[in-house]
Design a binder for these strands. Structure first.
Length: 789
DNA sequence: GTAGGGTTAG
C-alpha cells in the first residue's frame, strides 16, 4: 500500500490543496497517518496550512499527543496553529496543557492572542476544577479588547455559569454591546442549569420580545425550566411559540415537550407526542422511557426498553438511568434489582450516572448498605455520586455518616451547591451549629447565597440550631423565595413557639404570589399547635380545604387532632376523628394518645392505644406512651403490663441523649453518663444545683413515681437524665451569662423541664433546649413554651 | 434535545 502510494507520489506532484482536501475527507486515524506520510514525501511537512489542518484533524481523532508532537516540530507556528492546538487540548480534556500553551504564546512569542485564542482557552479553563484560570483569562481578554466579542462573550458567560457564578454571568451578558442567538441560548441554558428557572423564562421572553431569531435549541433549552417550575401554562406558551415559528416537528423540541408533559402526569399527551416523531432517535426513546418511569408506569417503560433492544438499537447509560424508578421507588425493590442486574451484565454499572441513580433509589428504599456498596464500587466517582451518597445518609437520618463522608469528599473534589444543601440539612437535623456556620462561610466565599436551595437549607439550619433571628435575617435578604423557603421559615417560627409570627408570615406568603403547598399548611398548623392557637388552627384547616382546594392528608388530620388535644379539648379531638371522611390511620390516633399523655386521660388513652396496637404493632413509642400514662395515673400494675409487652416483643426504646457544643466541640451525654472527662465536676455542679433548687421549692417528679417499678427501671430512674448533665457541663465550661444551648433526641421530660426552669433562674442563664418536637427558651424561671409541649 | 445528585412538616 505504502509502496503504491510512493509510486503515485513520485509520478504526480501534489500541492497543498490536494492534501487539504484529503485531510478533510479522512475518517480514520490511519487515513491521517498515511496522508501524513505522503505530505512528508511531497516536502510539504513545513507548510503551515497543511500542518495546521493535520494537527486539527489529529486532535479531532483524540490523538492529542501526536498533534502536540507535530506542533513542537513546527519551525514557526503562527497564531492560527496555536489556536487550533489550544482548542485541541480543550476538546481532549487537557485544560492545563491548553492554558500553558496560551502562556507560552504570550510570553515566548511575538504573537498577540485574538478572539479565537481567548474563546478556546476560556473554554478549556472550564474543564479545570478551579475557576481561577478562567477568571484570569477573562481579565486578559478584557485588557486585550476581546472581552465583549460575541464569540468570547458567549464562552465567558458559559464559563461563569459552569462555576455557579450566576451574577458574574449575568453581568457579562448585560454588558455585551450586541447579542446573537448563541449568546441568548447560553444565557438561557446557564440559568436553567443553575436552577434560576424564573430568570431563564424571563430572559427567554426578552429574547422573543426583542425579535431575536430563535432556533430549536432555544426552545428546547427553556422547556425544562417550565417543567421545573411546575408551570404547564408557561410550557404551553413556549410550545405555541415553537409551533408558530415552525419547530413543531423538530425532534429536539418534541423531545423537550415529552419531558415537560411527563412531569405533569400527562402521559397520554406524551405518548401522542412520541408517535409524532417520524424516526425517534435514542434521545427521544430515552425521554419516553423516563417519562413512563416518572409517571409510575414502569411496565410500559420496560416494554419500550425491550422494544428498543429488539430493534437492535444501542442503548446508553441515559436509557438505563431513565428506567430506574428514582421518583417512585416504593414497591419497586425487585424491579430495581433487575435493572441493577442488567446494568452489571451490560457493564454500564460503573458509569457514574447509572450507579448514582441506583445509589439514590436504593437509599430511598432504605437499602442504605446496598447504596454504599454501589458507591464504593464506582471506580470514577462523579460529584453527583458523592452527593447521592451524602444525601442518602442525610435523608435516612444517618447524619454523622453524611458529615464524615463529606470530609472524605472534600479531600478529592470541591463541593457544589447540591452537596452544601445536603450537608446543611444534616447540620440542621443534628443541631451542629458550628459546622453549619463553617458551611455558611464557605457559601459566602463561593458566592452561592443566590441559590434558592442553598439559602433555604441555610435558613432551616439556623432555625433548627436555635438561631431563629439569624434565619429571619437571611430570609429577609433573599430575593427569590419559593414555597419551600417560606415553609422553612414558617416552621422555624412554629418550632420556637412563635405561632403568631408564623401566622403573620403565612399571610404574607399568600400575598406574595408564591403558592402554598401541603407542607405550608402542615407548618402553619404545627405552629398553631405549639402556640396553643386552637381557633386559628381550625380556621386555617377549613380555609385549606375550602379556599385553597387541598384534600387533607393523614398528616393534616393528625395535626388538627394535635391542636385540639394539646389544648385539652380531648372530646372535640375524638369527635374530629370520628367525623373524618377517611379511615383514621396510626398517626391520627398517635396524636390523640400524645394529647392523652399531656392531660392524663387514661380512658381515652386506652381507646387510642388499642387502635394503635392494631394498626402499628411494631411501634415502640406508643407502648412507652401508654405505659407512662398509666404511671402518671399511679396505675402501676397496668404500666408494668404494657412494659412487659415491650420487653416480650423485644421492642427497643431509643436511648435518650443530649448534645452540647462548647467552643465548637460537640459533647454528647447519655442518661447517667460517667464517661465524660469532667464527670466528677459535672456531678458536683449538679449536686450544688439540686440543693439550691430544693431551697427554691423544686420537687423532683421522678421520686413520686419510684414505687412499684422494677429494680432495673428504678436504677434507670435514679440515674440523671442526659439533659441535666449537659446543662451542668455547660455551666462549668462557659463564661457566666453565656447562653446555653442543648439538643435532646427525644422529648424533654416533665422533670427536666421543670428543673431547667429553676436552673435558669438560679444561674441567671438563658437556656435553649431543642427536643424532638420543638424549642424551649428558658429564662428567669419561665419557659417560652408556656409549659405547653 | 434525553439520564443521575439538593431545601421544607412529623
Amino acid at each position: 500500500m505504502i509502496c503504491r502510494n510512493i509510486a503515485v507520489a513520485s509520478c504526480t506532484p501534489r500541492d497543498r490543496s490536494f492534501f487539504l482536501d484529503l485531510l478533510k475527507k479522512a475518517t480514520t486515524l490511519s487515513h491521517l497517518s498515511q496522508t501524513h506520510a505522503q505530505i512528508i514525501l511531497h516536502g510539504l511537512h513545513q507548510d503551515l496550512a497543511t500542518l495546521t489542518k493535520l494537527i486539527h484533524k489529529l486532535s479531532d481523532f483524540k490523538a492529542i499527543h501526536h498533534a502536540h508532537r507535530l506542533f513542537l516540530s513546527t519551525r514557526k507556528p503562527d497564531l492560527f496553529l496555536f489556536n487550533v492546538l489550544i482548542k485541541g487540548f480543550a476538546t481532549n480534556n487537557s485544560p492545563l496543557s491548553a492554558i500553558s500553551l496560551y502562556t507560552h504564546l504570550r510570553t515566548r512569542t511575538n504573537l498577540k492572542p485574538d478572539k479565537f485564542t481567548y474563546a478556546f482557552a476560556i473554554w478549556a479553563a472550564m474543564g479545570h476544577e478551579s475557576e481561577r484560570f478562567g477568571i484570569l483569562l477573562h481579565s486578559n481578554a478584557i485588557v486585550d479588547g476581546f472581552g465583549f466579542d460575541l464569540f468570547v462573550g458567549s464562552v465567558v458567560v458559559d464559563f461563569y455559569f459552569k462555576f455557579s457564578r450566576v451574577e458574574m454571568a449575568r453581568k457579562v451578558f448585560d454588558l455585551m454591546p450586541e447579542r446573537d442567538t448563541v449568546l441568548w441560548n447560553t444565557m438561557v441554558s446557564g440559568l436553567v442549569r443553575n436552577c434560576c428557572f424564573n430568570d431563564s423564562i424571563e430572559v427567554f421572553r426578552n429574547l422573543v420580545k426583542g425579535g431575536v431569531e430563535l432556533d430549536s435549541t432555544t426552545v428546547s433549552t427553556v422547556l425544562p425550566a417550565a417543567a421545573e417550575l411546575q408551570d404547564l401554562e408557561v410550557g404551553m406558551g413556549i410550545q405555541c411559540l415553537a409551533l408558530k415559528v415552525g419547530f413543531g416537528c423538530d425532534v429536539f423540541v418534541i423531545t423537550g415537550l415529552i419531558s415537560l408533559y411527563s412531569k405533569f402526569g400527562e402521559i397520554d399527551t406524551v405518548r401522542w407526542l412520541f408517535e409524532q416523531i417520524d424516526r425517534p432517535d435514542l434521545v427521544s426513546y430515552n425521554s419516553m422511557i423516563s417519562g413512563y418511569t416518572y409517571n409510575g408506569e414502569s411496565e410500559s417503560s420496560v416494554r419500550l426498553f425491550v422494544d428498543l433492544l429488539a430493534s437492535g438499537q444501542k442503548v446508553n447509560s441515559s436509557t438505563l438511568v431513565g428506567l430506574i424508578p428514582v421518583h417512585s421507588p416504593f414497591g419497586h425493590l425487585q424491579l430495581t434489582c433487575c435493572i441493577h442486574g442488567f446494568c452489571v451484565k451490560s457493564g454500564v454499572v460503573s458509569h457514574a450516572s447509572v450507579s448514582t441513580a441506583l445509589t439514590t433509589v436504593y437509599s430511598r428504599l432504605n437499602e442504605i448498605e446496598t447504596a454504599r456498596l454501589l458507591f464504593d464500587e464506582t471506580p470514577e466517582k462523579s460529584l453527583a455520586s458523592w452527593n447521592a451518597m451524602i444525601s442518602g445518609y442525610t435523608q435516612n437520618g444517618l447524619t454523622e455518616m453524611a458529615i464524615s463522608l463529606f470530609w472524605e469528599m472534600m479531600l478529592e473534589v470541591r463541593p457544589n451547591p447540591v452537596t452544601i444543601t445536603s450537608i446543611l440539612s444534616a447540620c440542621a437535623q443534628l443541631g451542629a451549629l458550628s459546622l453549619g456556620k463553617w458551611v455558611h462561610n464557605l457559601i459566602k466565599s463561593e458566592n452561592l447565597e443566590s441559590n434558592v436551595y442553598v439559602s433555604t437549607a441555610l435558613i432551616d439550619m439556623y432555625a433548627k440550631c436555635g438561631s431563629i433571628v439569624e434565619a429571619r435575617q437571611l430570609f429577609d435578604l433573599m430575593k427569590d423565595k419559593n414555597s419551600v423557603t417560606w415553609n422553612a421559615i414558617i416552621s422555624g417560627y412554629g418550632l420556637h413557639g412563635h405561632g403568631n409570627e408564623a401566622l403573620r408570615l403565612f399571610n404574607e406568603m399568600l400575598h406574595s404570589g408564591v403558592p402554598p403547598t401541603g407542607v405550608t399548611f402542615l407548618s402553619v398548623l404545627y405552629a398553631c399547635s405549639h402556640a396553643g392557637l386552637v381557633r386559628k388552627g381550625n380556621e386555617i384547616f377549613h380555609s385549606m380545604v375550602h379556599d385553597h382546594g387541598f384534600q387533607p392528608l393523614p398528616e393534616h388530620y393528625a395535626c388538627m387532632v394535635d391542636i385540639l388535644g394539646r389544648a385539652g379539648q380531648l372530646t372535640e379531638a375524638l369527635k374530629f376523628i370520628e367525623k373524618m371522611p377517611v379511615e383514621p390511620g396510626p398517626i391520627v390516633w398517635g396524636a390523640l394518645l400524645g394529647a392523652c399523655m399531656i392531660h392524663k386521660d387514661t380512658n381515652l388513652a386506652r381507646v387510642a392505644s388499642e387502635r394503635l396496637f392494631e394498626l402499628d404493632p411494631a411501634n415502640v413509642g406508643y407502648h412507652v406512651l401508654l405505659s407512662n400514662i398509666y404511671s402518671a395515673d399511679k396505675n402501676f400494675l397496668k404500666a408494668a403490663t404494657v412494659r412487659q409487652v415491650v420487653k416480650k416483643r423485644r421492642l427497643a426504646k431509643t436511648p435518650g441523649c443530649t448534645l452540647i457544643e462548647v467552643g465548637g466541640t460537640p459533647h454528647v451525654f447519655t442518661s447517667g453518663d460517667l464517661f465524660h472527662p469532667q464527670a466528677t465536676a459535672i456531678y458536683k455542679m449538679l449536686e450544688k444545683l439540686t440543693g439550691k433548687m430544693r431551697e427554691a421549692g423544686f420537687q423532683s417528679q421522678t421520686l413520686t413515681a419510684l414505687h412499684d417499678v422494677e429494680e432495673e427501671e428504678k436504677e434507670l430512674m435514679v440515674k440523671v437524665h442526659s439533659e441535666k448533665l449537659a446543662i451542668a457541663f455547660g455551666l462549668i465550661a462557659t463564661e457566666p451569662e453565656t447562653e446555653i444551648r442543648i439538643i435532646k433526641n427525644l422529648r424533654v421530660c416533665l422533670d427536666c423541664h421543670n428543673a431547667t426552669k429553676f436552673i435558669s433562674k438560679i444561674t441567671k442563664r438563658i437556656i435553649v433546649v431543642r427536643d424532638a418536637n420543638r424549642f424551649h427558651h428558658f429564662k428567669d424561671g419561665i419557659c417560652s413554651c408556656g409549659d405547653y409541649w
